[in-house]
Each structure stands twice: as structure tokens, then as C-alpha cells.
Design a protein around this nucleic acid. Sequence first.
DNA 1: CGCAGCCATACATACGTATTCACATACGTA
DNA 2: TACGTATGTGAATACGTATGTATGGCTGCG
Lengths: 342, 342
Amino acid sequence: MERRPTSFDIAALAGVSQPTVSRALSGNPSVSEETRARVLAAAEQLNYKVDKNASGLRRRSSRTLALLFFEEETPGGALINPFYLSLLGPMVRSCAERGYDLLISFQQLSSDWHVDYEDSHKADGIILLGYGDYLQYRPKLEKLIERGAHFVRWGSLSDGALGATVSCDNEQGGFDATSHLLQQGRRRIAFVGTVDPGYPEFLDRWKGYCRALRAAGIEPDERLQCDGDAAEVAGATAVQRLIARDADFDAVFAASDLAAIGVMHALHALGRSVPADVSIVGFDNIPAAGLSSPRLTTVSQNPRQASEALIDAILTLIEGGGAKNCLLPARLIVRESSIVPH
Amino acid sequence: MERRPTSFDIAALAGVSQPTVSRALSGNPSVSEETRARVLAAAEQLNYKVDKNASGLRRRSSRTLALLFFEEETPGGALINPFYLSLLGPMVRSCAERGYDLLISFQQLSSDWHVDYEDSHKADGIILLGYGDYLQYRPKLEKLIERGAHFVRWGSLSDGALGATVSCDNEQGGFDATSHLLQQGRRRIAFVGTVDPGYPEFLDRWKGYCRALRAAGIEPDERLQCDGDAAEVAGATAVQRLIARDADFDAVFAASDLAAIGVMHALHALGRSVPADVSIVGFDNIPAAGLSSPRLTTVSQNPRQASEALIDAILTLIEGGGAKNCLLPARLIVRESSIVPH
DNA sequence: CGCAGCCATACATACGTATTCACATACGTA
DNA sequence: TACGTATGTGAATACGTATGTATGGCTGCG
């Protein structure tokens, strides 16, 4: 039950002063190699670890980043967006490589988090992963900026891009997905996903869809456009609506994998075969996409790349560098659900 | 760019001394209500937030918990176990409710993390979520205990239960899953999953499987037992092996959902129908289980309950209470993959 | 030989809070 | 009036580190 050792204990054991211990451990070049070795040995021997609180207090930084998920009000506590979840692993690793710790937190859109983390020196910067209506949380971003907080967010660049933003090229992804379906000979391609400006990422995917169609000489047909969110039921609803409209579709580009899987289930129940009768492409490459049958063709936002970009951006910001936005490529992953059999 | 306010600034504004500010904000009863109100108003006005570093340094605690995933060595950085991922949301919420922050970290089994978090006062306690061979990380737990670290782990209780352990009743889950298959009239039930003692949770599920069979007067058949890990390919491999052995099975209890989904794919490729020809039950209730077709019957470990139990346990430990183990119930979720059509 | 210049280390201090102790005031009792 | 007690606040200090400044020993050059 003895007290944890401090830098003074190490100093005494190594026969130097406390400041020298601090310098030796932090790699300060003004300490000789021979002394440094002695200090390191002493630290090792006593199981010494720098006290992060004291260190942070002195340096006025915590070498910690806060990862903040925020979401619309939900009663039971909703699931985290699968893409954000896939960001988690790479993010933790990126942080660790750079000597930062990662704090994670959830916030309701309505709550008053603002810059608490930074104000309390609990974190040096914030990474925001928000879902839900962008228009609703936009005011929060404005407040962050006003208070001079260091933050980076994942989101769309085409919505005014408040604060440093890292984004995936959703428009290109939508274009590639649709082009792929066209290459498969499909002509009546439905779009499932909202075009609500509160969800600019979906809107971008839709724009890419339209561009691809027009590039092939096809004018987007309103009857093939089905509003819906990113849930599985949105897919089922969309199929019902398409059938009710007698829309005559031979492919579906769903702006989310969950919706795409919902579409597949609904078509299966109706006895229409995927991909023989209808080709499907999703978006996000969630784990379930690789496990569905048929396996889902989808557009992948590379989680490792995304994590790196977010961490790079926030660290640049913390070090006083300018905030530059970043647009990452989306990649089409062709699996079974879209391939028309000969 | 002005400096952040300190408790001295608040003190000056409220016309009291710094210690009074500290007392007022921490709810110390020795400060009068009238003074407290003045202090709170001043703090509000200046956007004051207690500096966590200074506070932590003084109190020698951080009001932070570390969530530590550790895993076998993998080259690219493997995915996090889906069940652990589902724990994340509820865990963050539980922490927040109790006024704690949550730090997350990954560690390779080989790395030397020990009690770094606690030694450096970065966290007051550690929650360990480990996967991979238990025998490999057991020595790490011993070292933690030896160093007097506060930690709780998720794992099996039937393996010696080193340290405070929260667990799901895997044996009962295996029993329920198998009983359900027996109720469906199945008699030749295969088991997919390892019985390696390094994976005691799988072993427990297998024991439950055996108990259910024997309760129905059936002696477990070795030819129906297929070793394999929790990956999707393990399911495919198992099916191949069963066929090669001519094992004549009409149901599969897979000790993980991923393996169960692998089994379904393999059977589908062989033209055998699920659930008409073969009934399937998985374990874990990962998101993809509810999305497969047919939707997978599985055994669920309640993530919210598990999170609460883990947080309760670690906080009890931190407050000096004794460490008691905790066994949570598993619940069978009946979906489509197991139901024999009439 | 003396002085400028450099290197390695020590001294002193500040970071912002929480807590121990002392103190002043007000009140009730003898 | 004198005294004990309860109550609310202030003064002083410690937590463990990082860093600006000072110091001592050394080399090299005139």
C-alpha cells in the first residue's frame, strides 16, 4: 500500500535532480545519453509512470482527444451508426500511435455539451460524429466555433461545411454505384434514400446517381425515387411504394446498406430474385453487407483512411495549423447482389 | 484569446475566496445557500469549468474509467468482437450517468500494458474485454492483481475466474438453444464451436448443449461436434466436415452467430434449405443475425445489463467494496432459421 | 593564462484545485 | 458578562510535473 513513486523518487535513485528526470523521460536533447539511461533504468525499476494529471496541469493539455457521437433524441438509446462503429478501432489505433488517449462520449442533440471537454482540459480537441438532421445540430457547431474550440467533424462538404470537415465523396460513390448498375445492363434503377437537405450525405449520393443516369442518356424518373431513412424498414417500404406505383424497376441503389438489405428481404418475400430479376447496390459496407445472401454490392467509405484523416486534421488544428477540409474517395465493392447472370 | 477563468476569477466575481468556490461547486454543505447561489451564478457567467487536471492531481483520482479491448496479435488490426461493440453504447451511458468519463484503448496480448492507466492516474479503474486464448492472457490478469489494480473483466466464471468477473450464463444459453431445437423435433443436432479450454465461454455453451441432449435421452455424438472459431469460414468448414463424415444432421447449434451465418451460406450453396431441411441457432445476437435470410434464431447476451453490471462492479471496487462475480442470464431469441414448417 | 562559449545539470517556480486548520461572528446558556 | 458551541469563510498548503533561468565545469582560442 506504499505511495506511488514520483519523479523525485526516480531522481534520488538515479542521483540526479527532479527536472533532469522530467527532461530525460520526455526526450529533451539537453540531457546526456548516459544520464538518460540511468534515469530510465531507475524509472523502470520503480515502475514509475508520469502522472498525467500533474503533467497535464503543468503543460495545460491532456494529450487526449474526445470522440463525441451525437444523435437525435431517442427513447431507449439507439444503436450507433455502423460506419461510425467501424471507425472506432482504427481511430483508437491512430490515437495510440500518436501518443494520444481517446475519450468517448454520447450526447443528445438537445444537451448542452458545447466545449465542456476542452474547457475542463479533459481533452485537447473533439472529433464529432453526428447523425440525424444536420440542420438541427448546425447551431451547436456555430457555438463551438464562437468559443474557439478545436474540433473536426465527419460530414458532407456540400452543406456549408461548418468547421474542419472530413468527408467521403458521396457524390462519386453514388455515381460509381449507378454506373455499375448501368454496366450490368440495368436501365430502370430506383433510388432509396432521402433527398432532405438535412441529410446532405444522402443528397450527395442522389446527385451522383442522377449524374450517372444522365451520362448514360437517361433522365431520372421521379417515380423511381423513394424517400426513406437508413433503417431496414425503409427498404421494405420503398419496395411497396415502387410496386404500388407500378414503377417497373430492374435495379435499386439504396443510399444505405440497411435499406438495401430491407429491399432484398422485401423482394425475396415477393418472389423476385436478386440479382437475377433485380440488381441491388447499397452504401456503407457495414459488416452485415458481406454476410447477406446474396452478398451485397456496396460502396465503402474506408474506415482506416477516414480515421487517419480525422486524427490528422484535429492534431493539425491543435498544433495551431489551419483547418483544411478533406475529401476521401469512395470505393465500389462488387459482390453478388448486383451481378446479372448471363 | 484570453485565458480560461480559474476558481480565483470566480471567487473575485462572487466576492468570496477561492476555497469557498471549490466548496460551493462540489456541493459541500458547509457553504451557505446564499453564497453557493452567488458562486454558481459567477461560474455560469464566466463559463467556468473545473480543470480536471488540477482537480485530479489534488484528489488523486480522475473520475475516468478505461475500457480496454485486448486481442490476439493480428497483422492488419482485426475487427472488434461484435458483442463488445454492442456494449459500447450502454457503457458510455452508464458511465456518464455516474459522472465518469470513459477512455478506450486497444492492446495486443503481447504488449506490456499492465496497470499503466491506473499508475499514471489516467483512470481509476479498468474494464477488460478480451478475446482470444484465455490461457494466453491469464498471466496478465495475475500481474494486475499482484499490482493491486482495480479491474473488472467480462469472461467465463468456470475458468478459475481471475479477478472480478461479469459473465453471461453460457451454459444455460447453450441448453436453451439446444432444447429449442429438440422441441422443433430435431434429433441430430450438430455443434459448431471449439471445446478448447482456452475458450471457456465456448466450452460452457457446449456443456449446455450436451446437458440438453442428455435431458432428452440423447447421448452427444462425436461426429456431430465440429471444432472451429467464431469466424464465418468456420461455419463453412464445419458443414464440409459434417458432410464428409456423413454425419446425417438436421440441425446446427453454432456457438457464434458468424459461424451460424457461415453454415447457412454453405447449406444454401449445397441446395439444402434452412429451416425446412436444417434448423440453425446461433449465439451472440450480432446485428447481422437479425438481417440474414432467413433471420437467425440466436442467444442474446443483454448488452445493457452487461454494461450496468460491469460498471457497477468496477465502481464498487474503486470505492473499496469487495469484488463479487456476477452471472447474467442468456435469452433465446427465436427467429426464422430454426422453426420447422408444418 | 584568461576569457568567451558551450554543455549538462540544479534551483526556483507556476499550473489550478481541494483540504486542513484557524478564525470571526452569532447565538444560547449560566 | 463570560463562556462554550455551531456555523460560514479565509489563509496556507500540497498534489507532481515542466520549464525559464542560473550555475558550474569544460574546451578552445588568443
